[in-house]
């Protein structure tokens, strides 16, 4: 009962946010720049939440998320530009192919742990980028023209679906199994959990939503080039998750919003932006290695106010 109450509250809040922003876009109070910023925030939240599932929930340190973003971006661009299919099909196909890529990358590399996994995912992301760089069908290094189809409605609906799916996954028995893999892989293996299955599943779901974000991303920028999907893009996504707190979904959402706004204002000064990013990474790791929220969620703080003992649902 309590769960469903939370769910409906979330839906009502989401509809309200959507309606307010849509109202301002429709009556012209918000110009192109601001509506683009809002779309970009939505895309970044999808990316942050999808990587949160891989790093924060399952504990698999992947730093190649931009690779799946690139797969989604290119595949969806092919669907709309070359095959002339509607945008909604492109989003779904982009997500599916990215999930497939996630499976292909995840099955061999998730046998690795820690640092090795990080480097392997980085390598795979770079291979994906180089493959797109070498395919003339998608324009090679010069890039590919994409028409502007992403609207606030598309971005927001995708965002809400992403959050609902990932929250439900996290709270299901599968999610609890994934958290047990994060906490102690050997112990959860000994408890009879098929750790490889859960790692690969989380990785594929994360890749699916990264692909969805890629579809929105490519149709928001008029042109996509392989150079947009390098190491730096992966680190951009990583910093959302790290700053928010490894294992906190609301933390990832908040830091995605915060950092997108900050980087929009610093657009004219890319060096300053990167220096701030890197200092944030270092300082957070040195002084608060759990990130801003740790594994707490915003709703946990509400519970803390009500009951002095604190919530019992950590690690969501």
């Amino acid at each position: 009962m309590k769960k469903s109450k939370q769910f409906w509250l979330f839906i009502i809040a989401a509809v309200l946010v959507y309606a307010v922003v849509q109202f301002f876009i429709a009556n012209g109070t918000m110009n192109q720049f601001y509506s683009n910023t809002f779309i970009f925030i939505a895309i970044n939240i999808i990316l942050a939440v999808s990587l949160h599932l891989v790093i924060g929930i399952t504990g698999q340190f992947s730093i190649g998320h931009a690779g799946f973003l690139a797969v989604g971006a290119y595949i969806s661009a092919i669907v709309t530009m070359k095959l002339d299919l509607p945008f909604i099909v492109a989003i779904i196909v982009g997500g599916m192919v990215a999930a497939l890529a996630g499976l292909i990358v995840g099955i061999p590399s998730l046998r690795l742990k820690g640092d090795y996994l990080a480097i392997a995912t980085l390598g795979f992301a770079e291979i994906i980028r180089i493959v797109f760089l070498n395919i003339d069908y998608v324009g090679g290094a010069a890039g590919m023209q994409v028409s502007h189809l992403t609207t606030w409605t598309y971005a927001f609906v995708c965002l809400v679906i992403t959050i609902i799916v990932i929250v439900n996954f996290t709270n299901s028995r599968h999610g609890i199994a994934a958290i047990s893999v994060r906490e102690n892989e050997i112990a959860s293996d000994a408890m009879g959990i098929n750790t490889t299955y859960y790692k690969v599943a989380a990785f594929a779901i994360g890749s699916f939503f990264a692909g969805v974000a890629g579809a929105l991303y490519s149709h928001n920028f008029y042109i996509i080039q392989p150079s947009q999907f390098g190491f730096l893009k992966s680190f951009d996504i990583l910093i959302f998750v790290v700053l928010g707190g490894l294992g906190s979904l609301s933390g990832a959402v908040l830091s995605a919003i915060l950092l997108t706004v900050v980087s929009t204002y610093l657009q004219g000064y890319p060096e300053t932006r990167m220096i701030i990013y890197s200092l944030v990474l270092i300082l957070v790791m040195l002084y608060r290695p759990k990130g801003l929220m740790g594994t707490m969620e915003i709703t946990d703080y509400f519970k803390l106010w009500r009951t002095p003992k604190g919530g019992d649902q950590h690690g969501k």
Binding site: F61, D115, F235, E271, M274, S278, L281
Partner: peptide, 24 residues
């Protein structure tokens, strides 16, 4: 004595800081 992930993220941060510090 921190976790491996914390150390790795710090290393990435230091790397970005040096690169963009030099560019700056």
């Amino acid at each position: 004595n921190a976790t491996r992930i914390a150390a790795l993220i710090t290393a990435i941060g230091v790397s970005l800081l040096i690169e963009y510090g030099v560019i700056y």
